[in-house]
Design a protein around this nucleic acid. Sequence first.
DNA 1: ATGTATTTTGACAACGATATCAATGGGGTA
DNA 2: TACCCCATTGATATCGTTGTCAAAATACAT
Lengths: 335, 335
Amino acid sequence: MAVTIKDVSKDAKVSIKTVSRVINNEANVAEETKKRVLLSVDKLGFRPNKSAQSLRSKRSFIIALLYDNPNKSYLADIQSGIFKACKLTGYNLVVQECDYKSPELNDTILEFVEDLKIDGLILTPPLSDMDDFLQDLDKHQIEHAVIAPSTKKTESLYVSSNDYEAAYKLTLEIIKHGHKDIGFIKGHPKHSASNLRFNGFIDAIKIHGFDVNNAWIKQGNFSFKSGFDAGVEIFHSDRIPTAIFASNDSMAAGIMKSAHMRGLKIPDDVSLAGFDDSPIADEIWPALTTVKQPVEKMAHHAAKILMAKFNGLEEANQSKEFKSELIIRESLRSL
Amino acid sequence: MAVTIKDVSKDAKVSIKTVSRVINNEANVAEETKKRVLLSVDKLGFRPNKSAQSLRSKRSFIIALLYDNPNKSYLADIQSGIFKACKLTGYNLVVQECDYKSPELNDTILEFVEDLKIDGLILTPPLSDMDDFLQDLDKHQIEHAVIAPSTKKTESLYVSSNDYEAAYKLTLEIIKHGHKDIGFIKGHPKHSASNLRFNGFIDAIKIHGFDVNNAWIKQGNFSFKSGFDAGVEIFHSDRIPTAIFASNDSMAAGIMKSAHMRGLKIPDDVSLAGFDDSPIADEIWPALTTVKQPVEKMAHHAAKILMAKFNGLEEANQSKEFKSELIIRESLRSL
DNA sequence: ATGTATTTTGACAACGATATCAATGGGGTA
DNA sequence: TACCCCATTGATATCGTTGTCAAAATACAT
């Protein structure tokens, strides 16, 4: 049988309540008693029964990751970052795929949280921007941290990256390489990053007084196929840009493929830039110029501050914006 | 406050125990009482408290996915398949990253299972082949299903794919295209699939009486980089093969890149085939000839039979081998 | 009508922790 | 010395289920 508090209390010759105090790090336990208890805990290999703790205290030491149909490598990175943070604190991680379009989303998640006594949630785009959902969480006092929200309306903890600034800088870099005719492929309309990246691009273009040719601005949705389709359209028009900036690497890869199929060479005929530094960026040829975001670190931080918050620790409320890094590779050439 | 069994029992004018019987679908409840109870459950919106259930009955309605450093898209597919199965049965899914080389692996997992009262585990390669770990699970009576084990020594539930057969067929297809000089890049030595795929390749080569040139057989580890390195070596030798079969798509992409950098054209100078039909297969150019495995379906099935098993359902013990599908794309040409 | 087997039901203990609140004891103050 | 205060400790109730076991109701055979 498993070791219980009772066993420990007998061994240490104290009441079970005192043992409970010690393992929960409560105040007002004499230093000596504490030592004695910890000794017994160690000696007997006691680990508290989580179900019992959960039943009585309504916390589970579980946090949940909510996501909807993300890029696979993005998800893996996020999850890994969160998991590592959990490992450090002894929390566990449950995952929940959602449909952000479902009218029952809110109810489903509320039930889920209530049933499992989930201590906190971590949301990824596009859930990060669903304001009514976030408000519902606030209303029900469900702790949560959001990854990459576009606005910071709610009280939510968050981590974000400087998408606007990075897109601005990357665009400047493209311009510095001598390009004036630049196309842009927008991301998924519901993802916060899409607008930030687009605005960064536009502002950099405008500050140089260049024209924005609307035929070269295409709506994508972050998928390879949407990039491919955009590429096909652009490359079939009478005049093609000298460079294209796609809001993420998958779409850039799509464009690259459409270029190859059209007999256009990258970067000789068209320069190309992506965003995210996903694995594919370095696995296609030529390798993509892109922006690297510390996704795993961001997720790690999100989990850390979330757990710090409901443990009443100092580090809580340390929402943070992470810096991205420009990565120049072969797909961008100087004119 | 939440609705409890007690509330339901009052409303339905039966004892608490009878309500418990109904919600657990136990035998020996009169049809009429059952109806009345269900009506009250519905009316009050009763959902059992999982912590209490778990405390008393030592099950959690949670299963766990164990993985170690897998390909990201593979992980996402597996996870998605499992999640969907969980959704159907009302189970929840927690994820656990492991280090298969860690000497504490067994203890860590046993503690994890015991603490959370995990009902069952799903293992992915290379954990699927760690016999002593599997035996430990058996010994502790921890239910589990393994994905893609190489041998079926233990009693474990499993799902697998016909890696050997698929590799054999793909090799035949390459041969049918007129190739005799064929290179092969092996996968991660600890992954079961590696040997199966290699054996399929070798046997198909031998049955045609072709030579195996050991200079063209390289050890990889399923990573892009290992494929790239293998490609560099092969393309720098005096004689290069007319086709290369890489045990997975990432490595094939690595080879493709090394070919491009060496000025070799695919498929004009070298034909190429991969395995897995991961997203990259269709996103690089030219697109990869490969083998598609129904990874998500496999994972779904694994989760399904696992849950069926500890619920004592008929469908349990339906371990299954899934068929893969040859996908011929541009990277393979006829000589 | 009686006795027996079977189905249906309920009272109460138990799971293993935390919460409440009162008891204990040592130190300081008047 | 008497009194109070506060830190420390413990007895007991409690969380919301399921398990045990016996009682009650019903069916069946004689």
